[in-house]
Each structure stands twice: as C-alpha cells, then as structure tokens.
Design a protein around this nucleic acid. Structure first.
Length: 169
DNA sequence: TCTTCTCACCTTTCCCTACT
DNA sequence: AGTAGGGAAAGGTGAGAAGA
C-alpha cells in the first residue's frame, strides 16, 4: 500500500526524526478516521431524509455532504418562517423553544415507569437544566451539555465549533 | 523555533459494471 | 466465467499554517 514514488521529497525529509516519521501516518489516519466518523454520523442523522429522496442510490461521502448542505439550507428557511410565526404568538426566542423542550422531556421522564440509573440521571440532568435556563438566558444555553456540539467542541482538535452553531435536529 | 495540525496530492486497493 | 475499465476510498507523504 505504501506509495512507491519517493524522489526529491526524501531530501527535505532528512531532518525528521524516526519517531516523527513513524507517528505521522498514524496521526493522519486518526484524522481521516475523525472525518469518516463525522460523515457517518451525518449520514445517520440525515438517513431518513436522504433515503426519501434517493432511495436506490449509493450513499457516497460527497452525496452525504451535499445532502447536509441542502438540509441545513431548508432548515434555515424553516427557522426564519418559525421566527416570523413566533413573533406573532407567545414564543419570542429560540431559548423559549429550548426551555419548552426541556420541560417536555422532564414531564415525559417523570411519568415513565422504567427507573434505571440512566433514566434517573437523565431526569436530574434535565431538571438541572430547567433551573439554570430560568436563571441564565445566554446564547450558549441553546447548546445543552450532552448535545452533539457540546461533545464535539469539548473533544481535542475541533476548535471551530462555537456555541451558537448547535442545531436542534 | 519547534511541534502539531491540516491540506493537497499521489498511489494502491477494492468493488462494481459492462463487455467478450 | 473472466477480464478490463472506472470510480471511490484508504493510506502515505510533503508543505505550509498556526500555536506554544
């Protein structure tokens, strides 16, 4: 699998330590894995949407990215329309919508019969969010801990994710 | 200045399809 | 059935940007 062409590139490579030469492919592989994992996640998020439009086609990475772009575009348009509507009705901001989501989740979990440890932790987590959302309405409260963005932005190497980018889909 | 990360390019491998 | 051709993905590498 190793490329067979080496040529003049070797000359400028002399200064690299053997450790560095060994590590580079691994680092690059990890990077590609991150890209592929994210594309896979994107694919699973877009899955139903994608299959509805292209039922028989093979899902290539480029297709997934294109679908994500078009989906985000339509989502933004939808969001604009919803903002128009919410201005005329009670809801004024996205954080109102988020608070209502948390409220719904707490209500649902409270009425559930199954009381596993995960269930209880989830419930107390959402209850905590209810309290904090009442006290602070910063834009970052739109990106709850545990949301995809929160997990990604806290991981090493992904620095671009800002708190305003979380999409509730 | 050194290290780390990212991008772009190239080669190789795998898989699918059309053709004989 | 098998083989050639093409596309997609994986993998390796150099170069340059960015950060410590």
């Amino acid at each position: 699998m190793a490329p067979t062409v080496f040529g003049q590139a070797n000359c400028s490579k002399e200064h690299l330590t053997p450790a560095h030469k060994l590590r580079k492919p691994m680092v690059e592989k990890l990077r590609r894995d991150r890209i592929n994992t994210s594309i896979e996640q994107l694919k699973s998020l877009l899955g139903p949407e994608f299959l509805r439009q292209q039922p028989d086609s093979k899902q290539e990475k480029a297709d997934i990215l294109e679908m994500a772009v078009s989906y985000l575009r339509s989502w933004q348009q939808q969001k604009k329309q919803q903002q128009q509507i919410s201005l005329t009705s009670g809801l004024t901001t996205a954080s109102d919508g988020y608070s209502r989501c948390v409220q719904e989740a707490v209500s649902f979990l409270s009425h559930c019969q199954v009381q596993t440890q995960a269930h209880r932790r989830l419930l107390s987590h959402f209850q905590g969010l209810q309290v904090s959302s009442r006290t602070s309405h910063s834009p970052c409260s739109l990106s709850p801990p545990g949301s995809p963005l929160h997990q990604v932005s806290s991981s090493k190497g992904v620095s671009q994710a800002s708190c305003g980018l979380w999409r509730p889909w």
